[in-house]
């Protein structure tokens, strides 16, 4: 299911302002790649380029290429791209007027699937994957605001998984959650990597070190260094990485 994602010389702009400078990196299949860096470093913009969400903002533009399974995502229809690359956001953003079930089914219905048994099968599977099933199986048709924020975030993960993407992007998924919910999301990421290529943006260095197979550090729109967390955190090659990790940066 998971496929590696290859980024070549990616630059991103808001109007005349450049946000990302020629980023190239590979996010291998069935691994967790964490993106770290101070706020404003371009982490979110980077991942928003991967599913072509960046270009939906007015005046936003990007250059370079992103390859998934030998296909350049920038030459595909954005809708197909977003079907292959799922995304979970900083704050839980379930559709407020829909039920738990309908939130997870939303992507399936968009894609024209009408068969009820396929939909409920897929909804259950996705909720199982995001380890939310046991908590919501009796309240599938309740409004989403009955869920806790942590549950809502796992619901958003289930929503993204329901259309079976190859890549799952999580943009600081735990940054607005309590520590316990945050830990749950972290465990979930570990479980999910056997099925998906995972890209996790985080500002929490411990978390990055714990779950990552590969870590990349962004500073001021540039990819400064990438490598296994063991290397990057203990023997940084770049002076700027060292400065950032020891807190001497920004």
């Amino acid at each position: 299911m998971g496929k590696s994602l290859v980024v070549e010389s990616l630059s991103a702009f808001y109007g005349k302002q450049q946000i990302l400078y020629h980023v190239s990196m590979t996010m291998p299949e069935h691994q967790v790649t964490t993106i770290i860096g101070p706020s404003g470093a371009g982490k979110s913009t980077f991942v928003r380029c991967l599913n072509r969400l960046h270009e939906t903002t007015p005046n936003a533009r990007m250059e370079g290429s992103v390859w998934l399974d030998h296909q350049n995502l920038y030459e595909l229809d954005p809708i197909i791209v977003r079907r292959k690359v799922g995304m979970v956001f900083q704050a839980p953003n379930p559709f407020p007027t829909r039920t738990v079930f309908e939130n997870v089914a939303a992507g399936l219905r968009l894609n024209g699937i009408r068969n009820k048994s396929i939909i409920s099968e897929q909804v259950e599977k996705s909720l199982q994957l995001s380890s939310l099933w046991d908590e919501v199986k009796n309240s599938l048709h309740q409004p989403v605001w009955n869920l806790t924020r942590g549950q809502q975030q796992r619901l958003c993960i289930a929503r993204a998984l329901a259309i079976e993407p190859s890549v799952l992007i999580l943009d600081e998924p735990a940054s607005t959650l309590d520590p316990l919910s945050s830990l749950k999301i972290e465990e979930l990421v570990e479980e999910l990597k056997s099925h998906y290529t995972i890209v996790l943006v985080t500002h929490n260095l411990q978390q990055a070190a714990r779950v990552a197979d590969l870590t990349a550090l962004f500073l001021d729109g540039e990819l400064v260094e990438q490598g296994s967390p063991a290397e990057l955190f203990t023997r940084p090659k770049d002076k700027r990485t060292e400065d950032y990790l020891t807190g001497r940066f920004g």
Partner: peptide, 15 residues
């Protein structure tokens, strides 16, 4: 989810 079904759906949705 079959791929060709999905592509067909996209065409319809964009129209």
């Amino acid at each position: 989810m079959r791929e060709e079904q999905f592509i067909r759906a996209i065409k319809r949705r964009k129209r």
